[in-house]
Design a protein around this nucleic acid. Structure first.
Lengths: 205, 205, 205, 205
DNA sequence: CATGAATGAGCATTCATTCAT
DNA sequence: CATGAATGAATGCTCATTCAT
């Protein structure tokens, strides 16, 4: 009895609330990608939805908070992909390759929608995307496992994970600048570099 | 007697002007590093000096212009170091190592002054520092030479140079986070990774 | 019961918006009159209201735009009066008199509110008020009609219309300076001068 | 002896001081004409001289003061012309005509130098030029004389003088807008209008 | 909850004015 | 006196955030 009574309004309201939140997140992702985090304004974000400006604050307290939510969201969507890759991978090598592929594909998809205006004159800016943080943690974990199993030399896992991030972060834009962007090529480059480089990196101790 | 009195005019004014310009540049470098290029405001910069707001515009027309001046300045100070390293290096390996050392030393020096508050709440953002641009160009040039001389495999020079940038940019902060920061260690890691990785990177066809 | 409650929504908001817009226009008219168009600042205008600075920009994009709105507004209020005068007038003479009366009454009303401080120290500056532009167009049109109908000699209509404007613009303040300002007297003076003067002005060829 | 001793430095310094003052006035007149009083800045004025910004303040305390000096200067140059005209005139009619001729010639000369940019989009602005004040006083005096001698009807001298100002002030720009500007034509129009109009203006009591 | 107008702090920039040289 | 760099108040304008409806 209370079931039906509560179902209708709750159901409807829940859906609307979720939809609004989602709409803001979608708009925010696009706006951040187009204008960059700093240049983007809350107004830009709500303009990308059908909502009124005040409504934004029913869901997020600030631009920063929306960014973090985006980060969580991205991580939530991205981590399973990496987990899956890890599970299916025959080894660290295979895993790393999958991870780079996934990342480059991700940013390629994200950037193909927009007409690529992105003002190239101003100093280039990169922010720690949520994907990067996920990648960092995953790669690091995976590397530590590989080291533990003797599948990789005992190098500084923190440095290596950061190196992966750095390479991905720089190679990504460089790849996008070429037309057409070749995801496999970039991933092969990164993987080859890291895997062989692993041998050259100083042993830890 | 009046002689000495008349020699002076070159003094105070000139010195003050140069000092002010330098003060603005110093403050700008710090502010850009702490807040990022986009988030930094002209006010942030002048607040970092003892000058009045209007004075900024006696020296630079905008935030962009300070950034460019900073870039020129950095390049002027940084490029010779890299050039020297290249000239003295016994090979690409040696050169790369010197370059990483120079860069890590540079950022270590820059960061030891301030107490590193760096507002960590706001999403972390990195912009291409002027040094990075210089490094990119130098490394790329040097790599192309090495490839031409057969000292390095024929890999994608653009990608590799970007990889070096990415590694430097991520390893730098990671290094600073450790105490004490070990420049040689970080440089050895980066160099070892790249040099060996070079062998693993796909040949350019 | 809920009926009346639901009828209300049209009320407060709409009224406030209209009231704010009107308040800005009123303040702008006063400020322009006191300081002149050039010297007036947007801040001067909002200071003349109870609104916050940012609110100005919810209604107008710039000082220019307020001025234009003021012009439209004045024209909308003023032109009908002149049109009516033209329709009812028994001749050009009658019309001209009505027009001067209307104009002098207008500025008299406008100036009786404020205590007329008008900063007399700064060089006195007059800008074309929106009313003047309307008057110019109306008078010129009316004069051309009168000439066409043979009710007035064939003089230079542009010059004459400008002469009317000039006389109105100078006589107005002169009238206000006397106490009490005598609208009828000033209008009689202006009308008499122009009408008789018309005979003395050179024929147009 | 003290003659020669004082002559050289005083002479030289006097000339320089006078020359500086004159240079500022010349530049100011041009700048005011081109940009208008409000838009003109002290910087604009000194930029029109070879002097340094600080030097301005050795001669004038502000933009306002320079305007007043310009006014005095203009009046000093203009009044003799009118006085002469009055002395030579055979009557009020003749005098008035000379006065309009002199004024229109004056502004025509002043405006022929500059390339006439004067932003015509923004609301037109007129300031009480010093010439106008002179004209007002002269015309009024002359009219009162004429009335006293029975050469003109006993009209309101204040209003009539203002009417002359207004006509001159509006007809001037209207004349300049035509090409080529016809000074005689404009003066004939103004004179004819006023003289005949005098008869139509209400008697003063 | 949604709405969107109001708010006012903050920013880039200009400019009159001062003052050490 | 001349110089021109330094100063800081003032301006136009934007935008995050609040709040009455």
């Amino acid at each position: 009895m209370s079931d039906t009574a509560e179902l209708e309004p709750i159901g409807k309201r829940e859906k609307t609330k979720a939809a609004n939140r989602a709409a803001i997140l979608v708009a925010a992702r696009r706006v951040f990608a187009q204008l960059g985090y700093e240049a983007a304004t809350v107004r830009d974000i709500i303009r990308g939805t059908e909502l009124a400006s005040g409504t934004f604050y029913n869901y997020f307290r600030s631009k920063e908070e929306v960014f973090e939510a985006l980060a969580d969201d991205s991580a939530r969507r991205f981590r399973p992909i990496l987990r899956l890759a890890r599970a299916h991978a025959r080894g660290f090598e295979d895993y790393l390759h999958s991870a780079f592929i996934a990342y480059f594909r991700f940013i390629a998809e994200e950037n193909e929608d927009e007409g690529r205006p992105i003002d190239e004159r101003r100093p280039h800016v990169r922010s720690d995307t949520p994907e990067m943080i996920t990648v960092y943690q995953e790669v690091r974990q995976s590397l530590e496992d590989a080291i533990a199993h003797g599948d990789a030399p005992d190098v500084d896992a923190d440095y290596l994970a950061h190196a992966c991030i750095g390479i991905a972060q720089e190679l990504g834009p460089a790849m996008l600048r070429r037309s057409p962007p070749d995801i496999d090529n970039a991933a092969a480059f990164a993987t080859g570099l890291i895997l062989k480089g692993l041998e050259g990196a100083p042993r830890k101790k």
